Amino acid sequence: MSRIITVGAAQMGAIQRADNRPAVVKRMVELMREAASHRCDLIVYPELTLTTFFPRWWMENQDDVDAFFEREMPSNETAPLFNEAAKLGIGFSFGYAELTPEGRHFNTALLVDKTGRQVGKYRKIHLPGHAEHEPWRAFQHLEKRYFEVGDRSWGVWNALGGNMGMMICNDRRWPESYRMMGLQSVEMILLGYNTPRHNPPAPDHDRLSEFHNQLVMQAGAYQNGTWVVGVAKCGVEEGCEMIGASSIVAPTGEIIGQALTQGDELIVARCDLDLTRSYKASIFNFEMHRQPEHYGRIVQQRGAVPPEGRSEG
C-alpha cells in the first residue's frame, strides 16, 4: 500500500536587509496558500527564511547581530504563519536564527505538524565559512562567528505519516548528515539552503555550484533510501548572487521536481514514502551489508591513520 505525502518546496527569492519580517511572512503565507490549493500535506521553506543572509556582513555590535535572531517561536511576527497552517491543515518546515533564553545562538530548522504544533527542531552542525574578518572578500561568510555548532545531532520524527528528518545547507555536503538519519530509518529529509554562487577561497568551483548542489542531494537520497526536499533562498540579495535549483529528489536518486526561476516559486510532488522500502530492504540494508566494526582496522592497515594509542609525533 502506498503512503503518499504531497510536498511543496517553497523556494524564496532574495530578501533584502530592508525587508521586515511581516513582509517576509506575508510571502510565506502566500506560498502556503498556493500549496494548500494543490492539497499539499507539507510545505518546506529555506534556511534563514525570515531575514537576509546576515553572515555576509562583519558586525562588532552584538545588538546588531541579535536583531536577526528570534527569541521565541512563534513570535508576534511569525504567528500568522502558524495560524494559517493550522487553518489550512498543512504542515511546514522553515529555517531561522534562534537565540535561546540562555543566550545561545543557533542556525535552526523547525518542523510543525498540520495542527500548528512544533514536533521537531534541528540546529545546524556543519557551519561553513570563517570566524574572523577577511576584508579581501567581496562579502563575508561568518557563520562560525555568529552561530554555535548545533547541539542536537540529527533527529528523525514520526510526523505527517512518515519518518521526517532535517538538515541545513552545508550539512548536505557531508555524508554523515544523511547517514545519521538513514540509520534511524528516515523517509524524507527536509533541507533548506542559502548558497552563494561565488566561493571566494575557491572561485574555480563557481561554475559547478548547481551541479555540486544536485550531486550531494541525489547521492544522499539514493545511498540512504530516502526522499530529499532541498529548498533555496536565491537570487541577488544585497549584491550577492545565491543559487536556486530547489529540488525534490526521490530515493532512486532521481530529481522529480525542480525550480526554474530565481524567485518565489512552489514545486509540488506526490511522494510515495513506501518507495523507500525497496532500497532500505535490499542494496542499502544497513544491518545486512554495512560493516562499521571493520572500518577502523581497514584504515589502519592501509596506513591512513596511526593505530590507536600510537603518537604521530
Rank of each mutant, 00 (worst) to 15 (best):
D41N: 14
D41W: 03
D41H: 15
L42W: 02
I43D: 01
I43Q: 00
I43M: 07
Y45W: 08
L48H: 04
T51E: 04
T52M: 08
F53C: 02
F53G: 00
F53H: 10
W57F: 14
W58P: 03
W58H: 12
W58M: 10
M59L: 15
N61Q: 14
N61L: 14
Q62N: 10
D64L: 10
D64C: 07
V65P: 14
F69Q: 03
E70G: 01
E72I: 05
E72H: 06
E72L: 02
P74A: 07
P74R: 06
S75T: 13
N76F: 10
N76V: 09
E77L: 11
A79T: 13
P80R: 02
P80Y: 05
F82H: 08
A85K: 07
A85M: 08
A86N: 09
A86T: 10
K87R: 15
K87E: 13
G89M: 04
I90C: 07
I90A: 03
I90M: 08
G91P: 03
F92K: 00
F94E: 00
F94R: 00
F94W: 12
F94I: 09
G95A: 08
G95W: 07
G95H: 10
Y96E: 01
E98R: 12
T100C: 06
T100I: 08
T100G: 05
P101A: 05
R104W: 06
H105F: 11
T108V: 04
L110K: 03
L111C: 02
L111T: 00
K114I: 07
K114Q: 14
T115N: 14
G116K: 06
R117F: 13
Q118K: 12
K121A: 09
Y122H: 15
R123A: 01
K124V: 02
K124H: 13
I125W: 01
L127V: 11
L127I: 05
G129T: 03
G129E: 06
H130G: 07
H130D: 07
E134P: 14
E134S: 09
P135G: 05
W136L: 05
R137W: 12
R137Y: 14
A138Q: 09
A138N: 12
Q140I: 02
L142N: 12
R145M: 12
Y146R: 02
D151T: 08
R152Q: 09
R152M: 03
R152H: 07
S153I: 05
W157L: 01
L160N: 07
L160E: 02
G161P: 10
